[in-house]
Amino acid sequence: MNVAQQFANGIIIGHAYALVAVGWTLLLGAARLVNFGHGQMYMMGAFVAWWLMSATGLPYAAAVPLAVLVGALLGALMQRLFLRLTLSQDLVNLMIATLGFGQILQGAAGLAFGAKPERLTSPLQAITLGGARVSCSAQDVLLVGATIVVFLGLHWVLRRSRFGAAVRMVAEDPPLAALYGLRVAPVYLAIFAFEGAAVAFAATLVAPRTPILTSIGFEQVVMTFVVVVLGGIGSVGGSYVAGLLLGLYTAFFSALVSPAYTTASVFALLIVVMVVRPGKLAASGGFAR
């Protein structure tokens, strides 16, 4: 086994996990809400970018922001649809409703984009960097860099901006926020839009690594769930670290044991962690760290 190469792979996959999960982390940490349509929104991000490029001939660099915009709109639409559930924090029904929303997305995508595997091609995927021992693509470097920028940016917004303070207020105590004259609904809308935009952005950066199918959502929502839980339910910094560790774990597990059992072993890991330290899993208001 080439340890250095597996280490590099782990870091790259880890950043992919973290970037895919960042929107859900904020959703859970700030709004105490879940979105089980997350994986299908990832799939939509990848397919919208693919469709824009293949049907209209747009370059990758233009397809990415447009797919992010569609993702943001999907997130906002979702929040409008489930407004009442959102404001009343009805988690069980929201879980079912978002699961249904995801299935509708997947069905619609199947109709619109077909059942064949497709390839979202980034010009950076073909550029190989590094030497004989360790190499990666320029797309991988972009992915890692963009993930770091997104996490630092989110951290800055939450800690330093007025809007970030509003998000933290909504996270801590929505009724009290009303007494401060803060309108809660637009903050929720922005959080959902960010969730949709972030997962679509992640999809456009990660999807060029492998062929895409309209059924790829499930694996993504599974990994996001693991990252969010390991990271401490809604902790932004925790999710970054958890994504990275999970990436290293899957890279080495695939190399040492078998790629076929990676997902199963991730779940085993998740269960062990939940049993061993259940009390530590809640972010308890410190999500913005």
Binding site: A165, R168, M169, E172, D173, L176, L179, Y180, G285
Partner: peptide, 18 residues
């Protein structure tokens, strides 16, 4: 009556736009 996760100054700035 105040936000535990916001600093004193953040609490004081949070409502002012209103």
């Amino acid at each position: 009556g105040v936000f535990m996760g916001l600093t004193v100054e953040e609490n004081l700035r949070a409502g002012v736009g209103a």
